[in-house]
Simulated assay, not measured.
Amino acid sequence: MATQDQLNALIADIANDINGFIGASVVDVESGLPLASHSVRPDFDLDVASAYNSEMVKNKRKTIDALRLEATLEDMLLTLDTQLHLIKMIEGDTFIYLAADRQATNLALLRSAVNRHVAALNA
């Protein structure tokens, strides 16, 4: 498992790399608690988002099991009319959750930046 400093650096690097960055957190799936988080908007509650997103990850895993798929969850994308939200599994039972302004970035740039930084963390 990555250290607290590494998780904080991961979020800072992603924030610096993505235009329209709103917020991000590294989340423990089982507890729903953020292990590290940062938002540029004080009204964007990453504790609440982390908890609800952990429930989505758990439910998607249940769906995969119910369908007897031989598959592993890699990421999930939620598109809102004004924002893009990405959930990327990191290692074991942790994921990074990221929200960005849809007008300032696009899905390809968002996924590329997150994948690059997560790969560097796992290297």
Rank of each mutant, 00 (worst) to 15 (best):
A113I: 13
K88H: 10
A100T: 07
N115Q: 13
E74N: 15
A99N: 00
K88Q: 11
L84D: 08
V118D: 01
T72R: 13
Q83I: 03
T94I: 05
T94V: 06
L84Y: 15
L107T: 12
L77T: 14
D93A: 05
A71W: 06
G92V: 00
E74Y: 14
L78M: 14
H117C: 07
N115H: 11
E74A: 15
D93S: 06
D101Q: 06
D81K: 11
V114N: 08
T94R: 00
A108R: 14
L121A: 02
L109Q: 13
T105N: 01
R102A: 07
M76Y: 05
M76P: 02
N115L: 09
A113M: 03
T79C: 08
G92S: 09
M89I: 07
V118Q: 00
L78R: 12
A108W: 10
G92Y: 06
H117P: 10
T82E: 08
A113C: 07
L110F: 04
A71F: 08
T79N: 13
I90L: 03
A108K: 14
M89K: 06
V114I: 11
T94G: 02
H85Y: 09
N106T: 00
D101M: 04
A113T: 11
V114D: 05
V114E: 08
L107K: 10
R111N: 11
A120S: 15
A108Q: 12
D81R: 11
Q83K: 07
A120L: 15
M76Q: 10
A120G: 14
N115I: 12
K88R: 11
E74T: 14
Y97C: 03
L77G: 08
Q83N: 10
I96N: 00
T72G: 09
